[in-house]
């Protein structure tokens, strides 16, 4: 099973994501902002990063841009957890280097399906 990094400043959202993914047998690390996520990413080789867009300290987009400069995260899928259904917001995420997005609200099944999809 995969090593996944869940980044969200909301403890409930992060908890729900981590709980669901652990239940599916994944190894999940949690970070509560982009800066902490980068620290975690440097020390662990994650197969997938799930990140909120709006976070204090360092937002999701800046985090993705930083991650993409790290050789080990060149091709690693990064999904943005976003409430934005507007195309331009999603495109902002894509432009920063995100793989795709998961639009909130999502339920655990949707989350697992998307993670399964992106891990191939």
């Amino acid at each position: 099973m995969a090593k996944i990094l869940a980044v969200d400043d909301s403890a409930s959202m992060r908890g729900m994501v981590a709980f669901t993914l652990r239940g599916a047998g994944h190894e999940v690390s949690e970070a509560e902002n982009g800066q902490l996520a980068l620290d975690a990413a440097r020390s662990g080789n994650f197969d997938l990063v799930l990140a909120d867009v709006n976070m204090p300290v360092m937002d999701g987009l800046s985090m993705v841009r930083e991650l993409r400069t790290m050789p080990a995260y060149k091709g690693v899928p990064i999904l943005m957890l976003t409430t934005e259904s507007h195309t331009d917001k999603k495109m902002e995420g894509k432009a920063a280097g995100a793989t795709g997005w998961l639009v909130k609200p999502f339920d655990p099944d949707q989350l697992l399906a998307t993670v399964k999809r992106v891990l191939g």
Partner: peptide
């Protein structure tokens, strides 16, 4: 303020409160 509103909106629908979202 935006971040706080945003988090509530995102979580509300996920945790079963679509009206709030």
């Amino acid at each position: 303020i935006f971040r706080a509103a945003h988090s509530i909106k995102g979580g509300a629908a996920t945790f079963g409160f679509p009206e709030m979202s």
